[in-house]
Design a binder for these strands. Structure first.
Length: 575
DNA sequence: GCCGTTTTCGGCCCGACTGTTTTCAGTCG
Protein backbone atom coordinates (compact mmCIF):
# COMPACT_ATOMS: atom_id res chain seq x y z
CA UNK A 1 0.00 0.00 0.00
CA UNK A 2 1.35 3.45 -0.85
CA UNK A 3 1.89 6.32 1.53
CA UNK A 4 -1.23 8.26 0.59
CA UNK A 5 -3.48 5.25 1.19
CA UNK A 6 -1.78 4.54 4.52
CA UNK A 7 -2.38 8.14 5.58
CA UNK A 8 -6.04 7.72 4.63
CA UNK A 9 -6.21 4.52 6.64
CA UNK A 10 -4.75 6.14 9.78
CA UNK A 11 -7.16 9.05 9.45
CA UNK A 12 -10.06 6.65 9.16
CA UNK A 13 -8.92 4.72 12.23
CA UNK A 14 -8.89 8.02 14.13
CA UNK A 15 -12.46 8.81 13.09
CA UNK A 16 -13.64 5.31 13.92
CA UNK A 17 -12.05 5.42 17.36
CA UNK A 18 -13.68 8.77 18.01
CA UNK A 19 -17.04 7.36 16.96
CA UNK A 20 -16.57 4.49 19.38
CA UNK A 21 -15.98 6.95 22.20
CA UNK A 22 -12.34 6.08 22.70
CA UNK A 23 -9.90 8.16 24.73
CA UNK A 24 -9.59 11.43 22.76
CA UNK A 25 -5.82 11.37 23.03
CA UNK A 26 -5.71 7.97 21.47
CA UNK A 27 -7.54 8.92 18.30
CA UNK A 28 -5.64 12.16 18.16
CA UNK A 29 -2.44 10.12 18.14
CA UNK A 30 -3.63 8.49 14.89
CA UNK A 31 -4.40 11.91 13.45
CA UNK A 32 -0.95 13.11 14.46
CA UNK A 33 0.64 10.03 12.94
CA UNK A 34 -1.18 10.59 9.64
CA UNK A 35 -0.07 14.22 9.59
CA UNK A 36 3.50 13.25 10.39
CA UNK A 37 3.52 10.98 7.33
CA UNK A 38 1.94 13.67 5.20
CA UNK A 39 4.60 16.23 6.02
CA UNK A 40 7.45 13.75 5.87
CA UNK A 41 10.50 15.26 4.23
CA UNK A 42 12.44 12.03 4.11
CA UNK A 43 11.71 9.26 1.67
CA UNK A 44 8.96 7.08 3.14
CA UNK A 45 10.24 3.81 1.67
CA UNK A 46 13.73 4.43 3.04
CA UNK A 47 12.36 5.02 6.52
CA UNK A 48 10.53 1.70 6.43
CA UNK A 49 13.46 -0.23 4.96
CA UNK A 50 15.79 1.11 7.62
CA UNK A 51 13.19 0.55 10.36
CA UNK A 52 13.41 4.19 11.36
CA UNK A 53 9.69 5.06 11.36
CA UNK A 54 9.75 5.70 15.11
CA UNK A 55 12.34 8.45 14.52
CA UNK A 56 9.46 10.50 13.15
CA UNK A 57 7.93 12.66 15.87
CA UNK A 58 4.36 11.49 16.41
CA UNK A 59 4.96 7.88 15.37
CA UNK A 60 5.64 5.41 18.17
CA UNK A 61 6.01 1.66 18.28
CA UNK A 62 2.31 0.88 17.81
CA UNK A 63 1.79 3.13 14.80
CA UNK A 64 5.08 2.11 13.23
CA UNK A 65 4.06 -1.52 13.37
CA UNK A 66 0.66 -0.81 11.81
CA UNK A 67 2.17 1.37 9.09
CA UNK A 68 4.70 -1.32 8.26
CA UNK A 69 2.02 -4.00 8.06
CA UNK A 70 -0.08 -1.82 5.77
CA UNK A 71 2.92 -1.05 3.60
CA UNK A 72 3.98 -4.67 3.24
CA UNK A 73 0.63 -6.48 3.09
CA UNK A 74 -1.87 -3.77 2.21
CA UNK A 75 -4.05 -5.07 5.04
CA UNK A 76 -4.48 -4.49 8.75
CA UNK A 77 -6.60 -6.70 10.99
CA UNK A 78 -7.03 -3.96 13.57
CA UNK A 79 -8.44 -1.62 10.92
CA UNK A 80 -10.70 -4.24 9.33
CA UNK A 81 -12.24 -5.18 12.67
CA UNK A 82 -12.71 -1.56 13.65
CA UNK A 83 -14.33 -0.73 10.34
CA UNK A 84 -16.64 -3.72 10.54
CA UNK A 85 -17.86 -2.56 13.93
CA UNK A 86 -19.23 0.73 12.58
CA UNK A 87 -21.83 0.89 9.76
CA UNK A 88 -20.36 2.54 6.66
CA UNK A 89 -22.97 5.31 6.42
CA UNK A 90 -22.26 6.60 9.91
CA UNK A 91 -19.03 8.22 8.70
CA UNK A 92 -20.71 10.43 6.11
CA UNK A 93 -22.93 11.98 8.77
CA UNK A 94 -19.81 13.63 10.22
CA UNK A 95 -19.63 15.78 7.09
CA UNK A 96 -22.71 17.73 8.19
CA UNK A 97 -21.66 21.02 9.81
CA UNK A 98 -22.32 20.98 13.52
CA UNK A 99 -22.26 17.20 13.77
CA UNK A 100 -19.36 15.49 15.47
CA UNK A 101 -18.69 12.01 16.73
CA UNK A 102 -20.70 12.35 19.95
CA UNK A 103 -23.94 13.45 18.29
CA UNK A 104 -23.63 10.96 15.47
CA UNK A 105 -23.21 8.22 18.08
CA UNK A 106 -26.47 9.26 19.70
CA UNK A 107 -28.32 8.98 16.36
CA UNK A 108 -26.79 5.59 15.79
CA UNK A 109 -27.39 4.19 19.26
CA UNK A 110 -30.81 5.67 20.04
CA UNK A 111 -32.42 5.74 16.61
CA UNK A 112 -30.33 3.14 14.73
CA UNK A 113 -29.59 5.75 12.04
CA UNK A 114 -26.76 4.56 9.81
CA UNK A 115 -26.79 6.89 6.80
CA UNK A 116 -27.33 10.49 5.71
CA UNK A 117 -30.52 9.40 4.00
CA UNK A 118 -31.95 7.99 7.24
CA UNK A 119 -30.81 11.05 9.17
CA UNK A 120 -32.67 13.29 6.74
CA UNK A 121 -35.83 11.20 7.09
CA UNK A 122 -35.53 11.31 10.88
CA UNK A 123 -35.27 15.12 10.77
CA UNK A 124 -38.27 15.39 8.49
CA UNK A 125 -40.24 13.11 10.80
CA UNK A 126 -39.31 15.28 13.77
CA UNK A 127 -37.54 12.45 15.59
CA UNK A 128 -34.25 14.28 16.13
CA UNK A 129 -35.91 17.13 18.06
CA UNK A 130 -37.23 14.58 20.55
CA UNK A 131 -33.80 13.30 21.50
CA UNK A 132 -32.38 14.54 24.82
CA UNK A 133 -29.99 17.41 24.21
CA UNK A 134 -31.56 18.21 20.85
CA UNK A 135 -34.40 20.54 19.88
CA UNK A 136 -36.25 21.95 16.90
CA UNK A 137 -33.39 24.29 16.06
CA UNK A 138 -30.74 21.55 15.96
CA UNK A 139 -33.03 19.51 13.77
CA UNK A 140 -33.53 22.40 11.33
CA UNK A 141 -29.80 23.07 11.20
CA UNK A 142 -29.01 19.44 10.50
CA UNK A 143 -31.58 19.33 7.71
CA UNK A 144 -30.26 22.54 6.17
CA UNK A 145 -26.71 21.20 6.55
CA UNK A 146 -27.58 18.02 4.67
CA UNK A 147 -29.25 20.00 1.91
CA UNK A 148 -26.21 22.23 1.49
CA UNK A 149 -23.59 19.56 1.92
CA UNK A 150 -22.42 19.98 -1.65
CA UNK A 151 -21.70 23.67 -1.07
CA UNK A 152 -19.98 23.03 2.26
CA UNK A 153 -17.67 20.43 0.75
CA UNK A 154 -16.69 22.67 -2.12
CA UNK A 155 -13.25 24.20 -2.35
CA UNK A 156 -12.10 27.02 -4.56
CA UNK A 157 -8.86 27.82 -6.35
CA UNK A 158 -6.97 30.60 -4.60
CA UNK A 159 -7.11 32.85 -7.65
CA UNK A 160 -10.88 32.38 -7.96
CA UNK A 161 -11.64 33.95 -4.60
CA UNK A 162 -8.97 36.66 -4.74
CA UNK A 163 -11.27 39.31 -6.32
CA UNK A 164 -14.01 38.58 -3.75
CA UNK A 165 -11.51 38.93 -0.91
CA UNK A 166 -10.32 42.26 -2.29
CA UNK A 167 -13.90 43.49 -2.59
CA UNK A 168 -14.81 42.56 1.00
CA UNK A 169 -11.59 44.06 2.40
CA UNK A 170 -12.15 47.28 0.48
CA UNK A 171 -15.71 47.47 1.82
CA UNK A 172 -14.67 46.76 5.41
CA UNK A 173 -11.81 49.25 5.36
CA UNK A 174 -14.15 51.94 4.08
CA UNK A 175 -16.31 51.68 7.22
CA UNK A 176 -15.54 54.44 9.75
CA UNK A 177 -15.68 51.91 12.64
CA UNK A 178 -12.97 49.69 11.13
CA UNK A 179 -9.40 50.30 12.24
CA UNK A 180 -7.77 47.26 10.61
CA UNK A 181 -9.07 44.52 8.34
CA UNK A 182 -7.41 41.40 6.94
CA UNK A 183 -8.35 38.09 5.39
CA UNK A 184 -6.70 35.34 7.47
CA UNK A 185 -6.89 31.56 7.10
CA UNK A 186 -5.66 29.47 4.20
CA UNK A 187 -6.18 32.42 1.88
CA UNK A 188 -3.53 34.41 3.73
CA UNK A 189 -1.26 31.38 3.79
CA UNK A 190 -1.69 31.26 -0.01
CA UNK A 191 -2.77 27.65 -0.01
CA UNK A 192 -3.51 26.49 -3.57
CA UNK A 193 -7.19 25.96 -2.78
CA UNK A 194 -9.35 27.41 -0.02
CA UNK A 195 -12.54 26.10 1.58
CA UNK A 196 -13.85 29.27 3.20
CA UNK A 197 -12.70 32.79 3.97
CA UNK A 198 -11.91 34.19 7.41
CA UNK A 199 -12.02 37.95 7.78
CA UNK A 200 -10.74 39.76 10.82
CA UNK A 201 -11.42 43.34 11.84
CA UNK A 202 -10.15 45.57 14.65
CA UNK A 203 -12.94 47.79 15.90
CA UNK A 204 -14.46 49.10 19.11
CA UNK A 205 -17.92 49.15 17.52
CA UNK A 206 -18.65 45.73 16.06
CA UNK A 207 -22.39 46.05 15.39
CA UNK A 208 -22.30 48.27 12.28
CA UNK A 209 -19.43 46.16 10.91
CA UNK A 210 -21.42 42.95 11.39
CA UNK A 211 -24.46 44.59 9.84
CA UNK A 212 -22.53 45.62 6.75
CA UNK A 213 -21.03 42.14 6.43
CA UNK A 214 -24.28 40.21 6.78
CA UNK A 215 -26.06 42.58 4.38
CA UNK A 216 -23.60 42.34 1.49
CA UNK A 217 -25.66 41.91 -1.70
CA UNK A 218 -24.04 38.54 -2.54
CA UNK A 219 -25.11 36.99 0.78
CA UNK A 220 -27.57 34.15 0.35
CA UNK A 221 -27.88 33.10 3.97
CA UNK A 222 -26.66 34.42 7.31
CA UNK A 223 -25.60 31.32 9.24
CA UNK A 224 -24.40 33.16 12.36
CA UNK A 225 -24.71 36.70 13.64
CA UNK A 226 -23.07 37.69 16.93
CA UNK A 227 -21.14 40.66 18.25
CA UNK A 228 -17.73 39.09 17.75
CA UNK A 229 -18.45 36.55 15.03
CA UNK A 230 -20.74 36.33 12.03
CA UNK A 231 -20.94 33.80 9.21
CA UNK A 232 -22.52 34.06 5.79
CA UNK A 233 -22.93 31.85 2.76
CA UNK A 234 -22.80 33.53 -0.62
CA UNK A 235 -24.70 32.58 -3.75
CA UNK A 236 -22.78 29.64 -5.13
CA UNK A 237 -21.90 28.32 -1.68
CA UNK A 238 -18.75 30.21 -0.67
CA UNK A 239 -18.62 30.59 3.15
CA UNK A 240 -17.26 33.70 4.81
CA UNK A 241 -16.67 34.32 8.51
CA UNK A 242 -16.02 37.68 10.08
CA UNK A 243 -14.57 38.23 13.52
CA UNK A 244 -14.33 41.62 15.18
CA UNK A 245 -11.89 42.17 18.04
CA UNK A 246 -10.53 45.20 19.90
CA UNK A 247 -7.32 46.52 18.40
CA UNK A 248 -5.25 45.30 21.36
CA UNK A 249 -6.10 41.72 20.37
CA UNK A 250 -5.95 42.12 16.62
CA UNK A 251 -2.50 40.69 15.94
CA UNK A 252 -2.96 37.77 18.31
CA UNK A 253 -6.22 36.99 16.54
CA UNK A 254 -4.68 37.52 13.11
CA UNK A 255 -1.92 35.08 13.93
CA UNK A 256 -4.37 32.58 15.41
CA UNK A 257 -6.82 32.63 12.51
CA UNK A 258 -4.12 32.61 9.89
CA UNK A 259 -3.04 29.23 11.29
CA UNK A 260 -2.42 26.62 10.19
CA UNK A 261 -3.71 24.47 13.01
CA UNK A 262 -0.37 22.66 13.04
CA UNK A 263 1.55 25.93 13.18
CA UNK A 264 -0.60 27.16 16.07
CA UNK A 265 0.01 23.96 18.03
CA UNK A 266 3.76 24.45 17.63
CA UNK A 267 3.52 28.08 18.68
CA UNK A 268 1.45 27.25 21.75
CA UNK A 269 3.86 24.54 22.75
CA UNK A 270 6.71 26.99 22.46
CA UNK A 271 4.82 29.57 24.52
CA UNK A 272 4.05 26.96 27.18
CA UNK A 273 7.69 25.92 27.37
CA UNK A 274 8.44 29.54 28.26
CA UNK A 275 5.69 29.70 30.88
CA UNK A 276 3.01 31.40 28.80
CA UNK A 277 -0.23 30.38 27.25
CA UNK A 278 -0.93 31.83 23.83
CA UNK A 279 -4.36 32.22 22.29
CA UNK A 280 -6.21 34.45 19.89
CA UNK A 281 -6.87 36.74 22.84
CA UNK A 282 -3.30 37.32 23.80
CA UNK A 283 -0.72 35.84 26.11
CA UNK A 284 -1.09 34.87 29.77
CA UNK A 285 1.26 33.51 32.40
CA UNK A 286 0.69 29.86 33.24
CA UNK A 287 1.64 30.26 36.90
CA UNK A 288 0.09 33.01 38.97
CA UNK A 289 3.29 33.64 40.90
CA UNK A 290 4.97 34.38 37.61
CA UNK A 291 2.79 37.16 36.24
CA UNK A 292 3.13 37.99 32.58
CA UNK A 293 4.20 41.49 31.76
CA UNK A 294 1.62 43.51 29.86
CA UNK A 295 1.79 41.88 26.49
CA UNK A 296 0.47 44.11 23.79
CA UNK A 297 1.78 43.95 20.28
CA UNK A 298 1.45 46.32 17.35
CA UNK A 299 2.36 43.80 14.70
CA UNK A 300 2.85 40.10 14.11
CA UNK A 301 6.60 40.73 14.14
CA UNK A 302 6.30 41.76 17.79
CA UNK A 303 4.18 38.74 18.57
CA UNK A 304 6.86 36.37 17.28
CA UNK A 305 9.50 38.37 19.16
CA UNK A 306 7.71 37.66 22.45
CA UNK A 307 8.74 34.05 22.05
CA UNK A 308 12.22 34.69 20.74
CA UNK A 309 11.25 34.09 17.13
CA UNK A 310 11.96 35.89 13.91
CA UNK A 311 8.96 36.83 11.79
CA UNK A 312 7.43 33.86 10.01
CA UNK A 313 5.69 34.83 6.76
CA UNK A 314 2.13 33.45 6.52
CA UNK A 315 3.02 31.21 3.59
CA UNK A 316 5.42 29.25 5.80
CA UNK A 317 2.99 28.63 8.65
CA UNK A 318 2.18 25.03 7.88
CA UNK A 319 3.75 23.44 10.95
CA UNK A 320 6.60 21.87 8.98
CA UNK A 321 9.50 23.13 11.05
CA UNK A 322 9.16 26.88 10.54
CA UNK A 323 9.00 27.62 14.28
CA UNK A 324 12.31 25.82 14.89
CA UNK A 325 13.92 27.59 11.97
CA UNK A 326 12.62 30.95 13.22
CA UNK A 327 14.13 30.32 16.64
CA UNK A 328 17.58 29.88 15.04
CA UNK A 329 17.19 32.82 12.67
CA UNK A 330 17.42 30.24 9.91
CA UNK A 331 14.29 31.05 7.89
CA UNK A 332 14.88 31.55 4.18
CA UNK A 333 14.66 34.96 2.55
CA UNK A 334 11.73 34.11 0.31
CA UNK A 335 11.53 34.92 -3.38
CA UNK A 336 9.19 37.84 -4.19
CA UNK A 337 7.05 38.58 -7.26
CA UNK A 338 9.28 41.53 -8.13
CA UNK A 339 12.31 39.20 -8.29
CA UNK A 340 10.96 37.60 -11.45
CA UNK A 341 12.74 38.93 -14.52
CA UNK A 342 11.06 36.93 -17.23
CA UNK A 343 9.00 33.81 -17.83
CA UNK A 344 9.29 30.68 -19.92
CA UNK A 345 6.53 28.38 -21.13
CA UNK A 346 4.10 30.68 -22.93
CA UNK A 347 1.89 29.99 -25.91
CA UNK A 348 0.94 32.04 -28.98
CA UNK A 349 -1.61 31.77 -31.77
CA UNK A 350 0.87 29.45 -33.50
CA UNK A 351 -0.52 26.64 -31.29
CA UNK A 352 -3.37 27.17 -28.82
CA UNK A 353 -2.63 30.65 -27.45
CA UNK A 354 -5.02 33.58 -27.90
CA UNK A 355 -2.44 36.24 -28.77
CA UNK A 356 0.27 36.60 -31.39
CA UNK A 357 3.99 36.44 -30.74
CA UNK A 358 4.24 40.22 -31.07
CA UNK A 359 1.34 40.87 -28.70
CA UNK A 360 2.89 38.59 -26.10
CA UNK A 361 6.26 40.32 -26.36
CA UNK A 362 4.66 43.77 -26.17
CA UNK A 363 2.85 42.75 -22.98
CA UNK A 364 6.05 41.23 -21.54
CA UNK A 365 7.79 44.54 -22.16
CA UNK A 366 4.95 46.42 -20.49
CA UNK A 367 5.31 44.12 -17.47
CA UNK A 368 9.00 45.00 -17.33
CA UNK A 369 10.31 41.54 -18.23
CA UNK A 370 13.92 41.35 -19.41
CA UNK A 371 13.10 38.23 -21.37
CA UNK A 372 10.21 36.10 -22.54
CA UNK A 373 10.31 32.44 -23.53
CA UNK A 374 7.91 31.18 -26.18
CA UNK A 375 7.10 27.50 -25.90
CA UNK A 376 4.22 26.45 -28.09
CA UNK A 377 2.96 22.87 -28.25
CA UNK A 378 4.77 20.19 -30.23
CA UNK A 379 3.36 18.19 -33.14
CA UNK A 380 1.84 15.31 -31.14
CA UNK A 381 -0.44 17.66 -29.24
CA UNK A 382 -3.02 17.72 -32.04
CA UNK A 383 -5.71 18.89 -29.64
CA UNK A 384 -3.61 22.00 -28.96
CA UNK A 385 -2.69 22.63 -32.59
CA UNK A 386 0.90 21.49 -32.01
CA UNK A 387 3.56 22.80 -34.40
CA UNK A 388 5.06 20.78 -37.25
CA UNK A 389 8.86 20.98 -37.69
CA UNK A 390 8.36 23.55 -40.45
CA UNK A 391 6.06 25.76 -38.37
CA UNK A 392 8.37 25.55 -35.37
CA UNK A 393 11.39 26.61 -37.44
CA UNK A 394 9.31 29.36 -39.01
CA UNK A 395 8.47 30.69 -35.54
CA UNK A 396 12.12 30.42 -34.58
CA UNK A 397 13.04 32.61 -37.55
CA UNK A 398 10.38 35.15 -36.62
CA UNK A 399 11.74 35.31 -33.06
CA UNK A 400 15.33 35.81 -34.24
CA UNK A 401 14.13 38.59 -36.54
CA UNK A 402 12.16 40.25 -33.76
CA UNK A 403 15.21 40.22 -31.47
CA UNK A 404 17.40 41.64 -34.24
CA UNK A 405 14.92 44.45 -34.92
CA UNK A 406 15.32 45.69 -31.33
CA UNK A 407 11.66 46.69 -31.56
CA UNK A 408 11.12 45.59 -27.94
CA UNK A 409 13.34 45.87 -24.90
CA UNK A 410 12.36 42.33 -23.92
CA UNK A 411 14.59 39.60 -25.33
CA UNK A 412 12.71 36.60 -26.71
CA UNK A 413 13.92 33.05 -26.25
CA UNK A 414 12.75 30.49 -28.79
CA UNK A 415 11.62 27.29 -27.17
CA UNK A 416 8.96 24.64 -27.36
CA UNK A 417 6.75 22.72 -24.99
CA UNK A 418 7.77 19.36 -26.30
CA UNK A 419 5.57 16.34 -25.62
CA UNK A 420 7.20 13.50 -23.74
CA UNK A 421 6.01 10.52 -25.74
CA UNK A 422 4.79 7.34 -24.09
CA UNK A 423 8.26 5.75 -24.13
CA UNK A 424 9.98 8.86 -22.76
CA UNK A 425 11.39 10.04 -26.09
CA UNK A 426 10.80 13.62 -27.25
CA UNK A 427 8.45 14.72 -30.01
CA UNK A 428 11.05 16.10 -32.46
CA UNK A 429 14.38 14.93 -33.86
CA UNK A 430 17.41 16.14 -31.93
CA UNK A 431 18.48 18.21 -34.94
CA UNK A 432 15.30 20.29 -34.63
CA UNK A 433 15.50 20.66 -30.85
CA UNK A 434 19.13 21.72 -31.05
CA UNK A 435 18.13 24.77 -33.08
CA UNK A 436 16.09 26.12 -30.15
CA UNK A 437 17.19 28.12 -27.12
CA UNK A 438 15.43 25.76 -24.70
CA UNK A 439 12.97 22.90 -24.36
CA UNK A 440 10.16 22.46 -21.82
CA UNK A 441 9.38 18.74 -21.78
CA UNK A 442 5.83 17.87 -20.66
CA UNK A 443 3.51 14.88 -20.51
CA UNK A 444 0.18 15.43 -22.29
CA UNK A 445 -1.06 11.98 -23.19
CA UNK A 446 -1.03 8.37 -21.99
CA UNK A 447 -1.75 9.67 -18.48
CA UNK A 448 -2.76 6.30 -17.09
CA UNK A 449 0.60 4.52 -17.17
CA UNK A 450 1.47 2.78 -13.91
CA UNK A 451 3.81 4.56 -11.52
CA UNK A 452 6.96 2.73 -12.57
CA UNK A 453 6.36 3.30 -16.29
CA UNK A 454 5.41 6.95 -15.84
CA UNK A 455 8.44 7.57 -13.65
CA UNK A 456 10.76 5.87 -16.18
CA UNK A 457 9.18 7.86 -19.00
CA UNK A 458 9.74 11.22 -17.33
CA UNK A 459 13.24 10.38 -16.16
CA UNK A 460 14.18 9.37 -19.71
CA UNK A 461 13.02 12.78 -20.93
CA UNK A 462 15.12 14.45 -18.22
CA UNK A 463 18.15 12.52 -19.42
CA UNK A 464 17.74 13.87 -22.96
CA UNK A 465 20.50 16.42 -23.61
CA UNK A 466 18.08 18.86 -25.27
CA UNK A 467 15.67 19.04 -22.33
CA UNK A 468 16.02 22.26 -20.33
CA UNK A 469 13.15 21.91 -17.92
CA UNK A 470 10.29 19.61 -16.99
CA UNK A 471 6.79 21.09 -17.41
CA UNK A 472 3.89 20.54 -14.97
CA UNK A 473 5.36 17.43 -13.35
CA UNK A 474 2.23 15.75 -12.00
CA UNK A 475 -0.36 16.85 -14.57
CA UNK A 476 -2.88 17.66 -11.87
CA UNK A 477 -5.73 20.08 -12.48
CA UNK A 478 -6.77 21.38 -9.09
CA UNK A 479 -10.28 20.30 -8.02
CA UNK A 480 -10.73 18.63 -11.39
CA UNK A 481 -8.17 16.01 -12.30
CA UNK A 482 -5.86 14.04 -10.03
CA UNK A 483 -2.15 13.95 -10.65
CA UNK A 484 -1.00 10.96 -12.64
CA UNK A 485 0.83 8.35 -10.63
CA UNK A 486 4.53 9.15 -10.66
CA UNK A 487 7.29 8.83 -8.10
CA UNK A 488 8.08 12.49 -7.57
CA UNK A 489 11.18 12.03 -5.34
CA UNK A 490 12.76 9.87 -8.04
CA UNK A 491 11.99 12.46 -10.70
CA UNK A 492 13.55 15.14 -8.50
CA UNK A 493 16.65 12.98 -8.06
CA UNK A 494 16.93 12.58 -11.84
CA UNK A 495 16.50 16.31 -12.45
CA UNK A 496 19.28 17.11 -9.99
CA UNK A 497 21.57 14.42 -11.39
CA UNK A 498 21.06 15.68 -14.95
CA UNK A 499 21.22 19.37 -14.02
CA UNK A 500 17.71 20.03 -15.31
CA UNK A 501 15.23 22.60 -14.11
CA UNK A 502 11.77 21.65 -12.85
CA UNK A 503 8.96 24.04 -13.60
CA UNK A 504 6.63 25.43 -11.01
CA UNK A 505 3.68 25.86 -13.34
CA UNK A 506 1.98 29.01 -12.08
CA UNK A 507 -1.37 28.52 -13.77
CA UNK A 508 -3.80 28.83 -10.83
CA UNK A 509 -5.36 25.51 -11.78
CA UNK A 510 -2.04 23.64 -11.78
CA UNK A 511 0.58 25.02 -9.33
CA UNK A 512 2.66 22.00 -10.19
CA UNK A 513 5.25 20.79 -8.97
CA UNK A 514 3.50 20.96 -5.62
CA UNK A 515 5.00 23.38 -3.07
CA UNK A 516 5.42 20.56 -0.53
CA UNK A 517 8.38 19.12 -2.44
CA UNK A 518 10.38 22.26 -3.11
CA UNK A 519 12.08 22.94 0.21
CA UNK A 520 14.04 19.74 0.35
CA UNK A 521 14.62 19.59 -3.41
CA UNK A 522 16.01 23.12 -3.57
CA UNK A 523 18.28 22.41 -0.61
CA UNK A 524 19.74 19.63 -2.72
CA UNK A 525 20.37 22.00 -5.59
CA UNK A 526 17.24 21.75 -7.75
CA UNK A 527 16.51 24.85 -9.83
CA UNK A 528 12.95 26.09 -10.26
CA UNK A 529 11.43 28.00 -13.13
CA UNK A 530 8.19 29.79 -12.28
CA UNK A 531 6.20 29.70 -15.51
CA UNK A 532 2.73 31.15 -16.10
CA UNK A 533 1.90 28.69 -18.93
CA UNK A 534 0.23 31.75 -20.46
CA UNK A 535 -2.23 31.19 -23.27
CA UNK A 536 -2.99 34.93 -23.50
CA UNK A 537 -1.43 38.25 -22.58
CA UNK A 538 -3.58 38.42 -19.44
CA UNK A 539 -2.23 35.10 -18.21
CA UNK A 540 1.39 36.29 -18.31
CA UNK A 541 0.69 37.87 -14.92
CA UNK A 542 -0.17 34.45 -13.50
CA UNK A 543 3.49 33.98 -12.60
CA UNK A 544 2.46 35.72 -9.36
CA UNK A 545 0.52 32.63 -8.22
CA UNK A 546 3.60 30.54 -8.86
CA UNK A 547 5.68 32.87 -6.73
CA UNK A 548 3.20 32.43 -3.88
CA UNK A 549 3.59 28.65 -4.08
CA UNK A 550 7.34 28.96 -4.40
CA UNK A 551 7.28 30.90 -1.15
CA UNK A 552 5.22 28.13 0.44
CA UNK A 553 7.97 25.82 -0.78
CA UNK A 554 10.60 27.90 1.10
CA UNK A 555 12.23 28.94 -2.18
CA UNK A 556 14.75 31.74 -2.21
CA UNK A 557 15.63 33.91 -5.16
CA UNK A 558 18.81 31.92 -5.78
CA UNK A 559 16.80 28.75 -6.50
CA UNK A 560 14.59 30.42 -9.07
CA UNK A 561 16.05 30.32 -12.56
CA UNK A 562 13.89 33.13 -13.94
CA UNK A 563 14.87 35.47 -11.14
CA UNK A 564 18.28 35.63 -12.79
CA UNK A 565 19.28 38.46 -15.12
CA UNK A 566 19.22 37.96 -18.88
CA UNK A 567 22.95 37.51 -19.18
CA UNK A 568 23.07 34.61 -16.71
CA UNK A 569 19.99 32.98 -18.18
CA UNK A 570 21.45 33.19 -21.70
CA UNK A 571 24.71 31.67 -20.52
CA UNK A 572 22.88 28.83 -18.80
CA UNK A 573 20.76 28.07 -21.87
CA UNK A 574 23.83 28.03 -24.12
CA UNK A 575 25.10 25.40 -21.70
C1' DG B 1 -1.22 6.15 21.39
C1' DC B 2 2.91 9.47 21.89
C1' DC B 3 6.26 11.74 24.53
C1' DG B 4 10.13 13.06 27.96
C1' DT B 5 17.80 17.94 30.30
C1' DT B 6 11.02 17.85 34.78
C1' DT B 7 11.67 10.33 31.08
C1' DT B 8 8.34 5.04 32.32
C1' DC B 9 3.61 8.30 34.39
C1' DG B 10 0.63 11.77 33.52
C1' DG B 11 0.12 15.06 30.52
C1' DC B 12 -1.62 15.87 25.69
C1' DC B 13 -3.94 23.88 23.10
C1' DC B 14 -7.82 26.47 24.35
C1' DG B 15 -11.78 29.49 24.35
C1' DA B 16 -16.21 31.11 21.88
C1' DC B 17 -20.51 29.91 20.18
C1' DT B 18 -24.77 27.22 19.75
C1' DG B 19 -28.54 25.04 21.45
C1' DT B 20 -29.81 23.10 25.00
C1' DT B 21 -29.93 23.47 29.37
C1' DT B 22 -30.58 25.94 34.46
C1' DT B 23 -24.75 25.01 34.54
C1' DC B 24 -23.24 22.43 30.35
C1' DA B 25 -21.77 19.35 26.36
C1' DG B 26 -20.46 19.28 21.77
C1' DT B 27 -18.43 21.45 17.90
C1' DC B 28 -15.33 24.40 15.70
C1' DG B 29 -11.28 26.67 14.37
Amino acid sequence: MDKASIIGCLEEIAVLLELKGENPFKFRAYENGARALETLEENFETLIDEKRLTDVSGIGAALAEKIETLYKTGKLDYYDKLKASVPAGVLEMLEVPGLGAKKVRVFYEKLKITSLEELKEACEAGKIAELPGFGAKSQDNILSGINHLEAYRKRYMWATVEPQVEAVLTGLRALPEVELAECAGSFRRKLETVGDLDFLVASEAPEPVMDWFTRMPEVEKVTGHGTTKSSVRLEGGLQMDLRVVPKAQFFFALHHFTGSKEHNVKMRQRALSQGFSLSEWGVKAVHEDHPAPIQEVDSEEELFQLFGLHYIPPELREGVGEVDYASHDALPKLVKPEDIRGVFHNHTTASDGKNTLEAMVAEAERLGFEYLGIADHSKSSFQANGLSEEKLLEQLKAIRKLNASKQYKTHVFAGVECDILKDGSLDYEDAVLEELDYVVASVHNALTLDEAAMTRRIIRALEHPCTTMLGHLSGRLLLKREAYTVNIPKVIDAAIANKKIIELNASPKRLDMDWRYWHKAADRGLLCSINPDAHSIEQLKNYRYGVYCARKGWLQKCSVFNARPLKEVSAFLRG
